[in-house]
């Protein structure tokens, strides 16, 4: 994605400041996420990843700054069928089956039962469709939650650590699916604390202590830090910051 891309960004964060419980969690962060890309949001837990994600889906109270998604203020009514959110802990009903969970979200978005079934197939939960969500493993719950988001065919899909605890084969399948969605023009923001997922992203946002310490493509990040892999690139950036401060 060239930096002088004339198309408006799918997500624009401008000078965002968020406080939670008297502590500043995001300190004046700005970024622009291009449409039709997969952006990785990387950083240790507690760095502000979830807070940024909640600001983008419009469930976070913000202190100052703006978040614009698809040209509208984050959380606007018009965005609720176009932006889907996969929470860190699967937001599904344990006393409903996989099928009923996905069918419920499908109907909220005005989608059909058939679309619900194909979302279940897409996350590889076909064989568990009749099972109660309470009896699923952690990874299966995450996939069900993902199906509940995919079912609205969102233009922007925001996922908070969707691959935690997943079987490597399924993780691979999901990432392929994320790539396919981006290729079809969808915009994805995927948070992770696993560096080996970073290479699958078009762009990376590295967060540390409420600040972005990098906002670049994986290749450029490696080149500018002279590192062979992204883990050491991240370390390089942190050391550099510590030296200058």
């Amino acid at each position: 994605m060239p930096p002088d891309n004339p198309a408006p960004p799918a997500i624009a964060v401008d000078r965002l400041v968020v406080e939670r419980g008297g502590r500043t969690v995001l300190l004046d962060v700005s970024t622009a996420i291009p449409a039709g890309s997969v952006t990785g949001l990387l950083g240790p837990s507690g760095s502000g990843k979830t807070t940024l994600i909640r600001s983008i889906v419009g469930t976070q109270k913000i202190k100052s700054g703006t978040v614009t998604v698809l040209g509208e203020p984050a959380g606007s009514k018009g965005l609720r069928g176009r932006v889907a959110y996969v929470t860190q802990d699967a937001a599904i009903y344990p006393d409903l089956s996989v099928k009923s969970n996905v069918a419920y979200f499908a109907s909220l978005y005005g989608r059909s039962r058939k679309e619900a079934m194909s979302a279940i197939d897409a996350v590889g939960m076909h064989d568990h469709a009749g099972q109660l969500a309470a009896n699923l493993s952690g990874g299966q719950k995450t996939r069900t939650s993902l199906a509940c988001a995919l079912v609205c065919d969102p233009e922007v899909l925001v996922l908070d650590e969707p691959t935690v605890g997943l079987d490597p084969v399924i993780r691979e399948e999901l990432w392929n699916q994320f790539r396919d969605l981006a290729a079809a023009g969808r915009t994805l923001l995927v948070s992770s604390h696993v560096m080996d997922e970073a290479d699958r992203c078009d762009r990376l946002l590295l967060v540390r202590e409420g600040r972005f310490i990098a906002d670049d493509t994986p290749a450029d990040l490696r080149a500018s830090t002279g590192s062979a892999n992204l883990e050491s690139a991240f370390l390089h950036l942190i050391r550099e910051l510590e030296r200058t401060s």
Partner: peptide, 13 residues
């Protein structure tokens, strides 16, 4: 507390 309320608030509900 289970997060479903927050999730619903991002849907047309």
């Amino acid at each position: 507390t289970a997060g479903t309320l927050e999730r619903l608030m991002t849907t047309p509900t």
